[in-house]
């Protein structure tokens, strides 16, 4: 597999009221051509901050501080975190693109869809307005918008949520990026529209071979689209591996707890059994628990083992990683 983006030890700190708060801790993962990596976790686990850090869209230094590296491979490869903003701006939209959860707020309400697509194309390529317009029409067609030529003249508010997300995807795909970061692109959409968009992303990926980082909190969506999965908790990777493996045999108590707490379609109408729950709340990033960040909520927590730093990342299989002090014993117990 060809690597497209290698993220190593990404950490993000925010400064608030004279204190520095770390919201992403030493996160490492690799995006490969034609493959999708899912970043899953509950609200506040640092998923969006990770994606914004990679895009260089976090507030500038005194307010936030990003360390680590993110190597973009291939043609004019570079460390996204190390290069000056001017250079990053040139890569953004061209080699690495992003789509967001709420397409209405990320599209400019006063410009037509066509104008925004043309702008996206011409800001990186010296092509004529005419040629860019033709390409825009082609793109709308590709993302499945009916009557693309007529739709170019539409304004964002005239489109439905699903259509807007398609336009966002068209803009992101305009320059055939190597890497696409999608931050909860279907969370605001209905299930039938979500299915359409996931299908579209999958088809585009097959055709262009782009690498995708897909952020979501829904394990159902993960199962649907991702080849590999990274589970995040309180800004840290707690478990990673091939999606199928993780869903079948979650090793980290947080992952299995999270999966047990979602009701399944498969058991619908079989009487209201208790759902498994995870007690307590996600910790405040300003006061993270020592040791495993999950230990105050974990049913398998052992004092003296789980609450003392550091908890190392281990590899239960060549392809998998886990950050849990007791994973070995717990895996035995299950057996």
């Amino acid at each position: 597999m060809t690597e497209r983006l290698r993220v190593q030890d990404l950490s993000v700190h925010f400064r608030s009221e004279r204190r520095e708060v770390q919201v992403v801790h030493d996160l490492s993962f690799t995006l490969e051509a034609g493959r999708t990596l899912a970043l899953v976790g509950e609200s506040g686990s640092g998923k969006s901050v990770t994606s914004l850090a990679l895009m260089g869209l976090l507030p500038p230094p005194p307010q936030s501080r990003t360390t680590g590296s993110a190597l973009l491979e291939g043609r004019d490869g570079a460390d996204l975190l190390g290069i000056p903003e001017s250079r990053r701006r040139r890569l953004r939209g061209d080699r690495i693109a992003m789509i967001f959860q709420e397409p209405l707020t990320s599209l400019n309400p006063v410009h037509s869809v066509g104008a925004q697509l043309v702008e996206a194309i011409r800001s990186h390529r010296s092509v004529s307005r005419r040629a860019a317009w033709d390409r825009a029409e082609e793109l709308l067609d590709e993302v499945g918008i009916p009557e693309p030529a007529a739709r170019l003249a539409s304004f964002p508010h005239e489109l439905s949520g699903g259509m807007r997300q398609r336009v966002m995807i068209a803009i992101a795909l305009a320059l055939e990026p190597d890497v696409l970061i999608a931050d909860e692109p279907t969370t605001a959409l209905d299930v039938t529209v979500q299915a359409q968009i996931l299908d579209l992303l999958r088809r585009v990926q097959e055709r262009t071979g782009m690498a995708m980082l897909f952020i979501t909190h829904d394990f159902g969506v993960v199962a649907d689209i991702a080849h590999r999965t990274v589970v995040m908790y309180a800004g840290r990777m707690v478990e990673a591996g091939p999606t199928e493996d993780i869903l079948r045999r979650p090793l980290m108590p947080y992952t299995s707890g999270l999966m047990a707490s979602v009701p399944l379609l498969e058991t619908a109408g079989t009487g209201r059994s208790e759902l498994a729950t995870i007690d307590g709340f996600v910790p405040d990033p300003a006061a993270p628990p020592a040791g495993c960040a999950f230990h105050p909520r974990c049913a398998h927590n052992r004092p003296g083992r789980c609450d003392v730093p550091p908890i190392a990342v281990e590899a239960p299989a060549p392809d998998r990683s886990i950050r849990c002090a007791r994973w070995r014993e717990l895996a035995e117990e299950v057996r």
Binding site: V191, Q194, A195, V221, A223, D224, T243, L247, L265, E266
Partner: peptide
Amino acid sequence: SAAPSPVPG
């Protein structure tokens, strides 16, 4: 059929 489900396989 559109509802995503985390049940693998």
